[in-house]
């Protein structure tokens, strides 16, 4: 069992943080890599990119949004409960390089994945502008941490309740227009990454995105996580999870993420019935 030693609720309880004892994974993991978690005997294998690792303490931290049965099951685990299985670190680590001016764009729980990458990019000497967004102020996560991890933090809310009133892409475009940006890292919901990609294609910048498709084993064995990048099929688990955001077929990815929508609903309803909700 992999014990949970810290649990926090964020964004009005829709987002959960778990710090988990996993010393071997913590020792090995680098920014951008992911783990697969399975709550119990009957559980699904869920891939999540790590938000934090502490090799000395021997812990990893995941931050996820509660969207279906499996994440509801994760949500119901308390401190001192544990995950039956945690596998990792998986995937390739983020390619970190000093390039100069960088923009990091995060949306939803993508911000959690973006955090260690942002920090690492700043630590090696990049000038990092970070732009994070949420629907409304109360759903924003990791504001303090992102502020510390970047040189300049911009916040956006769809409803204007905090920071810039509008989307992260609008602020990103303003920063891009000031010139000098070499690299954009965007991690968040697929529509956000697609919107970012549509804009950055018009500038002379590189775009790095982190994908989270449906997968089972995470070691290249099932091919469920295949994505089309530059017209070629890639496996997100071993070739990614990070790819050139100008080459990813986001429309296909979005469709594939919906493969099991009906089943997910059935599973969630079943879980609620079992719990007597």
């Amino acid at each position: 069992m992999f014990k949970i030693i810290r649990r926090e609720e964020m964004a009005e309880g829709t987002v959960i943080l778990n710090e988990i004892e996993a010393p071997l994974i913590a020792k090995k993991a680098r920014p951008g890599q992911f783990v697969i978690l399975k709550a119990n005997e009957t559980g699904e294998r869920i891939p999540l990119t790590m938000a934090e690792t502490d090799p000395e303490k021997g812990t990893i931290t995941i931050i996820y949004m509660v969207v279906g049965k499996s994440t509801a099951l994760f949500r119901d685990l308390k401190v001192d409960d544990g995950y039956q299985d945690v596998i990792g670190p998986l995937g390739k680590a983020t390619h970190l390089e000093k390039v100069g001016k960088v923009i990091c764009v995060g949306g939803g729980t993508g911000v959690a994945v973006l955090h260690p990458i942002t920090r690492a990019l700043k630590e090696i000497g990049n000038d990092v502008t970070c732009i994070i967004g949420a629907r409304t102020k109360d759903l924003l996560i990791l504001e303090e941490q992102m502020k510390a991890a970047s040189n300049d933090l911009r916040i956006c809310t769809d409803d204007g309740s905090y920071g810039h009133h509008g989307f992260v892409t609008q602020v990103m475009q303003e920063v891009l227009d000031q010139g000098g940006v070499k690299l954009v890292v965007a991690i968040g919901p697929v529509p956000m990454m697609k919107a970012v990609s549509n804009i950055t294609k018009g500038y002379d910048v590189e775009l790095q995105v982190s994908l989270n498709p449906i997968m089972i084993d995470g070691t290249g064995m099932c091919g469920g996580c295949r994505v089309t990048v530059g017209g070629k099929t890639k496996f997100a688990c071993v070739d990614g999870p990070e790819f050139d955001g100008h080459k990813v077929n986001f429309d296909e990815l979005m469709l594939r993420l919906g493969s099991y929508l009906d089943d997910e609903k059935e599973s969630h309803d079943h879980y609620c019935r079992v719990r007597g909700e």
């Binding site: 009957t42 699904e44 049965k69 089943d263 059935e266 599973s267």
Partner: peptide, 10 residues
């Protein structure tokens, strides 16, 4: 054995 087990298949 879905939905007793959580993993679906088409």
């Amino acid at each position: 054995l879905f939905p007793e087990y959580d993993t679906p298949v088409i």
